[in-house]
Design a binder for these strands. Structure first.
Lengths: 338, 338
DNA sequence: TTGAAAGCGCTAACAG
DNA sequence: CTGTTAGCGCTTTCAA
């Protein structure tokens, strides 16, 4: 049962050399006779030797690990980010500690302390919204990169989605389609994301010589609000020919209500969502054109920036990852249905 | 910048004692004079001393970490499990390494090797389905617990949802409601989960003296299939008064089609989904009654079993976590609409 | 009650 | 080329 695991010493004994030599052979450091090297590798193999990364880390004063902290319980937004990050970090032979702070500062600080004790090389902090958050309290000189949710402290490195560009992308697409009466329907006004997407849309429309048919409708991020808002909208502006929604859920509700009210999508009303949440966008009737915010790219870039910082080249300030439009049937009658 | 972090030595120097004494004071080992102890704690505080967990682990020969491996890219099913596990492990002061194997055995083995090098105390393996999977290859005596997806090797510890009970729960509820013409509509026949839920439903109906109005309809897990299957179903069995669906997505499609075909839910047809995916079940019209499989509980129990195994008390074999029914408007006309 | 010394497993510097 | 030595930061005998 509790057989101790093989050590460098064990390998050395088995190969008839000294521990130092084993270390060199295994790490390719220094000069080793081919034959000796082979013997050592064989011995290591035979006793299933696995170098103790912990011991090495004590010596190297770094652990090749990073902490991934989310305030979001790894919900819809942080999961893609985290996968992107894990992907990029894994390539750099770095392992990732998972921490769910549940939006509780106490819990978060606890995780930070524990992980500092484990000598993580850095942190990635991610959260639900585009809103600012308080910076992480790391007394030591450990780099931190914020993903999705920027640090309020100027100079901290934050990797973000580009909400303004998202709105612009939608607006430009609608203009290209020749729509003239555009409405915007979105979630809570307390989200920076909502306001920025609305601003982006307005600016693109303005560039095309248009303005919103009615002021943006703020509400919450639910399908029910999407349905309700559609009714309100068609009452106040029955002639709208395009609706851009702050997320895909809303857009689904809108699509359902439009259909039930006898408006065809996209013929009568073109519809665009945000997030490109495959499962939702694809399942809607008709499938939704949507702005993809590039969440995995946010994670990958954050990881890259963190690796850079760890290597001694910190980046400062905020960076936005480009978004792109995924066109489906809700704006393109040539697109295949269902 | 690169200031070395404080060590036991530094604290010792500052407090005018020896490193050994510091260790004792900080860990509450041995006998220490109150006054000395206070002095040491103060010194540690002042220079922000944080014990190096790595060094301690080298000595203790364990790391107080576990590897959490998913084949599922942390999608809908593994996320709740993983949160449950993280929750339970965090309480035991254990940190969690995150690994996304993406269903690639090579990648998975790579992660296992890396984490064994980091001397993890154990592994939790989770995945998408209730189907069996090949056991993890861990040569060393490191415990492994499977969550959601059982190991094919007898005697391995697997914590699972109870698909049969889920089907039974749905069936019993429908019988209680007095429904007589029950249909079942589900996803791929290749999923053990589909077959087991169907079996559970059938057995509950049999206990109530009923049988399925038509054989189960297997398809895929999409909303589109839910809609299509509804049309098929109403053609072959126009008098059904209840439908149990293998997941909530399907049930949503069914709800939409029923409404469009002029059947009222729940008055004409009672509808039950599976998974209790809040966002879906709640957003549907009407909100869906659904079987909650208890995913976070699976994660928590898996964590508990792993902790036990690490402590030297391994559990063997498969355990099922109980599921429960969440009643909403789709089976209960007294439930509030929306 | 405290200090000195040895060691966890590994690596790097320096001899030989 | 290879072995010896010393040391990473911490803990634990064992003396004092």
């Amino acid at each position: 049962m509790g057989e101790k695991r093989a050590t460098v010493r064990d390998v050395a004994a088995r190969a008839g050399v000294s521990p130092g030599t084993v270390s060199k052979a295994l790490n390719g450091t220094g000069q080793i006779a081919r034959e000796t090297r082979a013997r050592i590798l064989a011995a290591a193999e035979e006793i299933d030797f696995r170098p103790n990364a912990l011991a090495r880390s004590v010596f190297e004063r770094r652990s090749y690990t990073v902490g991934l902290i989310t305030t979001d319980s790894f919900e819809r937004f942080s999961v893609p980010v985290m996968l992107g990050a894990e992907d990029a970090l894994g390539a750099g032979r770095i392992s990732v500690f998972l921490c769910d702070s549940r939006d509780d500062p106490i819990r978060e600080q606890h995780y930070v302390d524990v992980l500092l004790g484990r000598r993580v090389d850095g942190f990635i902090v991610t959260g639900r919204t585009s809103n600012e958050r308080a910076p992480l309290e790391v007394s030591a000189d450990v780099p931190v990169v914020y993903a999705l949710t920027p640090s309020a402290r100027a100079g901290d490195c934050s990797i973000l989605v580009d909400d303004v560009a998202a709105g612009r992308l939608a607006g430009e697409h609608l203009i290209r389609l020749g729509r003239r009466r555009v409405a915007h329907l979105t979630g809570s006004e307390w989200f920076d994301a909502s306001r920025r997407r609305a601003a982006g849309l307005a600016s693109a429309l303005a560039d095309g010589g248009l303005s919103l048919a009615v002021p943006p409708l703020f509400g919450d991020w639910t399908e029910a609000w999407g349905r309700q808002a559609t009714h309100m909208l068609l009452r106040s502006a029955p002639d709208v020919d395009a609706i851009y929604c702050g997320n895909d859920i809303l857009a689904r509700g809108v699509a359902d209500s439009l259909r039930e009210l006898g408006r065809r999508v996209p013929e009568d009303v073109a519809l665009i969502g945000t997030d490109n949440w495959e499962f939702i966008a694809h399942g809607a009737r008709p499938p939704l054109t949507s702005v993809d915010l590039g969440l995995p790219a946010v994670g990958r870039l954050a990881a890259q920036r963190l690796l850079d910082a760890i290597a001694g080249n910190p980046h400062a300030g905020r960076e936005h990852v480009p978004c792109h439009l995924v066109v489906r049937a809700s704006t393109d009658d040539a697109a295949p249905p269902t």
